[in-house]
Amino acid sequence: MTEPGPRLPPRLAEIVEDFASVEGKDKLALLLELSDELPDLPEGMEQADMEQVAECQTPLFLTVDVSNLSSVRLFFQAPPEAPTTRGFASILANGLDGESRETVLAVPEDFYSALGLADAVSPLRLRGLSAMLARVKKQLRAA
């Protein structure tokens, strides 16, 4: 049931498998680990240059570098007091950074349901993650 679809790129598929293989508190621990690993913005990039994702309960900023469409770069910024939002951003950053425009656009909108986080995090909170992916795709479509 939690088998990722064929179109998930390998690193994202691995993250989905990691989540699917643990339960309850361990899912939260995994999300916190990812939250801790969200990379800082590269030197010279400012929050002002990024798009705010209003669907997240706490401020999240993202931008997609589309200068090379066969390897797009994803950048996210969220404050430490929003670890869940950071964790979601980290799933996308770890899973999709460096993939091609087509590969990212092909990620199913509902891929997050396979993470099995609805019980641990609540369905409402999970919507922030789908909103983030939607914004990433929107920037890619415009590229």
Binding site: L28, L32, S35, T58, A82, P83, T84, T85, G87
Partner: peptide, 9 residues
């Protein structure tokens, strides 16, 4: 908290 992970952080 509002954020479900904040305590854990």
């Amino acid at each position: 908290d509002e954020d479900v992970l904040l305590y854990d952080s």
